[in-house]
């Protein structure tokens, strides 16, 4: 279980997130939403130990992550970074194997456990046929799957994703998120992800946390949080919310781009 208690993070004088408390249980996905610069990425960075909080606590299974060394932390908690172009001529298999760093010694010698974990991660992300291809020659969606596979190979109970669907097309967005959904249920992973696309939120998340200006506005199930009132206020733009005809989940249309016809 991932538990964030009264977390405040500041970069110098600028407070990035303030007094945030959240809880995610195994098998559950928490989506962080909010405008650009709201503090979603900072939250992910703080939980993964890249920035130390000014105050508050982050615990995984009641162990404070601030107290444990980076190697051990990486066995509890893995991160899928934001989609971006990756250079380097490593093969997919080599890149995913590096997710095993926390389980290896200084020399990076692979043992059977490492090879098994990599094989499983490549299977789960459907990358087996890509194993010996160079990552720099993959498409954006494929590269993002490599980053997911690398995090899965890390074999941690907590998985965090920082806007994993940026720059991905519709098919790759949905297939990546459905895979995360499936793994969260099957392997009882505790998942926290920052998401940009509000309409993907109700497909993937059990809980949604809306963050604006570093403050937690509300947290709850997607229908609770994704109200036109909440979203309009957070994004400073009027929105219409309709129900998905089949699933009933909320779909958000910014009013500015909906053409008026009369």
């Amino acid at each position: 279980m991932l538990k964030i208690t009264n977390l405040t993070v500041a970069y110098g004088q600028n407070i990035a997130v303030q007094d945030i408390s959240l809880e995610v249980i195994p098998g559950e996905i928490l989506a962080l939403i909010g405008p650009n610069g709201a503090g979603k990425t900072t939250l992910v960075r703080a939980v993964s130990g890249l920035v130390s909080p000014q105050s508050g606590q982050i615990t995984v299974d009641d162990q404070a992550i601030a107290d444990i060394p980076s190697g051990e932390r990486a066995r509890m908690l893995s991160v899928v970074p934001q989609a971006r172009h990756m250079g380097g001529a490593f093969t997919v298999e080599q890149a995913v194997m590096m997710g095993r760093t926390a389980h290896m010694g200084w020399l990076g010698r692979e043992c059977q456990d490492d090879r098994d974990a990599v094989k499983l991660a490549l299977e789960q992300t459907n990358l087996k046929d890509f194993a010996h291809r160079s990552i720099s020659k993959l498409s954006g969606g494929e590269q993002q799957r490599v980053l997911l596979a690398r995090a899965l190979a890390q074999s941690t109970p907590v998985l965090m994703l920082d806007e994993p669907t940026n720059h991905l097309d519709l098919q790759h967005q949905t297939s990546l998120l459905s895979l995360v959904r499936q793994l969260a249920q099957e392997k009882q992973l505790t998942v926290m992800m920052a998401l940009h696309d509000l309409n993907l939120v109700s497909f993937v998340a059990d809980q949604v946390a809306l963050i604006v200006n570093g403050l937690l506005q509300c947290v709850g199930t997607p229908p609770e949080v994704l109200s036109s009132e909440n979203i309009s206020q957070a994004y400073q733009i009027p929105v219409d919310i309709v129900s998905h005809p089949r699933t009933g989940s909320p779909i958000i249309f910014p009013q500015g781009i909906v053409k008026e016809r009369d």
């Binding site: 890249l50 980076s70 970074p81 760093t101």
Partner: peptide, 24 residues
């Protein structure tokens, strides 16, 4: 000669290397 693994992991950048568990 034995620093190769660290150098490999560092190719993803310091932040990701830390998240992968390297003592950067």
């Amino acid at each position: 000669s034995i620093s190769g693994h660290s150098l490999n992991v560092l190719q993803f950048g310091e932040d990701e290397a830390r998240q992968m568990g390297l003592n950067v």
